[in-house]
Design a binder for these strands. Structure first.
Lengths: 274, 274
DNA sequence: TGACTATTGGTCATGTTGACTATAAAGAGT
DNA sequence: ACTCTTTATAGTCAACATGACCAATAGTCA
């Protein structure tokens, strides 16, 4: 609730809040910025320079400023960390909020986590921040700082689930892409191989998922037969969904996240929804 | 991020946090507690006694205490507001975090919203809190306090989506229930009628969704042929999903939530799938 | 008794998916 | 130039899931 009807009497009472006390927390955002590079899932990480977890990799992020929402803070941090110019059009999905009291040994920090999907992978030029940001392969990550292993695993779960029933896969692709590239998004995130003809049939049968580029343009870059180019459509949901094959365990192993630091929540499918 | 690498220099620096400043926010939880009563979706609401929004209905909730996570705070508030004894086994799902700077006119409050599903509807006996809590029909709600209209609408969206690909529908049901009661959960939340034979076929074909009560027990309460009793199974995902009929608009109108107070997030399908 | 209601069992047509075969069009290697 | 490899694309076919039904059963209600 927003109104402090309950008298949880601690801390100072701020101005205009005479009868009700509260405990001030620091509120931050954490970003799981994902992209596909050379057919592998990559994550944007920064190397920590201070204790705790000095030298460890961590998700980029920062404090929510007094005048901005968590979404605005996430977008600002995304621009700062990646050095991108037009983060305005990027899809930013709120994952969940991590609030374990001991997740930061220094003080009480509540963090709102977001996931962002980038089409290509421009090398991040540290936009003024301390440690340099860098793309690292999702599969080859040591333990991250804080509870960032779990945040990243949650992000991966959520994105994998949303691929099933939404059209966000195009967010990983450049403005014009082939169906093979789109299929590779699914294959990389899910860690499974998909049948190209069946995938094609499904995508083209879903109105608004993709639309062909008018000029009969074809990409003749790599090996094999040149593929037709498509653009992202206007639809954002996938009815019926494109379910991942149930008979396989994902070979793309998530980073080590042994301790469930937060409780009482289902991972995602939600994605299936959710 | 958890570590304040960026120097967002504002506010006081707390002890042990010398080099980095932060802005203290109040962190609360808001609960969208849903139940089915007489075939209609009901929400647990409290009447506000103070300004702002005095006299308006609001979602129950309260501050996160220094030693607890948001999930623990939500569970504690749930017990306090409903007067239930065993909230430990209840499913509590984190929805998202609402952080618009102006969502509370008094001060900066960031709120983590949760949804909870209750089987039956015990009349809440205000567990010590000020305004009395009460069940109100979801369809017959005036505008709520703060951004609670939107939180509630998000909760409804999320639950409706999760019904498609998860087994949470049983969370609305008592320990033993008939397939007709389970079907009514879907029909009430989705606002659509479902074909009883087809629903039955789908549910029984999904391993682990429900399991029959051994003693061939049957419920012979109301009208019609007595129905077999089932218990919730062990599965929590629904493969393949139970998609809601796409060719109908939900007649169950959500409460008025005209202004999108938060930005940059997709509602749910997460729903389906999330 | 008869009307009514809800559960349960079943069929049938349709739509979707998974597995698979085949052809086309490019580059790489010899 | 020729072959091999790679990828895209077209198409088929069976298994499966779904939506729309029909019918029988077993209770309550008047």
């Amino acid at each position: 609730m927003t109104a402090p009807v309950n008298g949880a009497a601690r801390g100072r009472a701020p101005e205009g809040y005479d009868k009700y006390a509260f405990e001030p927390f620091a509120v931050t955002v954490d970003l799981a910025v994902l992209t596909l590079r050379a057919g592998a899932l990559h994550v944007l990480l920064v190397e920590r320079g201070h204790e705790p977890y000095a030298g460890r990799w961590a998700l980029p992020g920062g404090f929510v400023l007094p005048h901005e929402s968590a979404e605005e803070a996430a977008r600002r941090e995304l621009a700062e960390e990646t050095g991108l110019s037009d983060v305005s059009g990027l899809r930013l999905e709120q994952l969940r909020t991590y609030s374990q009291p001991d997740r930061d040994p220094r003080m009480r920090v509540v963090s709102v986590a977001f996931a962002a999907l980038l089409p290509d992978a421009p090398e991040p030029h540290g936009g003024g921040d301390a440690a340099q940001a860098q793309w690292l392969r999702y599969n080859a990550l040591g333990p991250l700082a804080f509870d960032h292993d779990r945040i990243l695993a949650d992000a991966h779960d959520r994105i994998g689930a949303k691929l099933e029933y939404s059209c966000i896969a195009t967010a990983f692709c450049p403005p014009e892409f082939t169906l093979g590239e789109l299929r590779q998004v699914y294959e990389t995130v899910w860690g499974t191989a998909l049948d190209p003809p069946n995938f094609r049939r499904k995508v083209l049968a879903t109105p608004g998922f993709v639309e062909p580029v008018p000029g009969a343009a074809r990409l003749t870059g790599g090996r094999g037969k040149p593929a037709a180019l498509y653009r992202a459509g206007t639809a954002d949901t996938l009815h019926p969904p494109l379910l991942r094959p149930s008979t396989s365990v994902s070979p793309a192993s998530p980073p080590s996240s042994p301790s469930p630091t937060t409780s009482a929540s289902t991972p995602s499918p939600e994605g299936r929804p959710a």
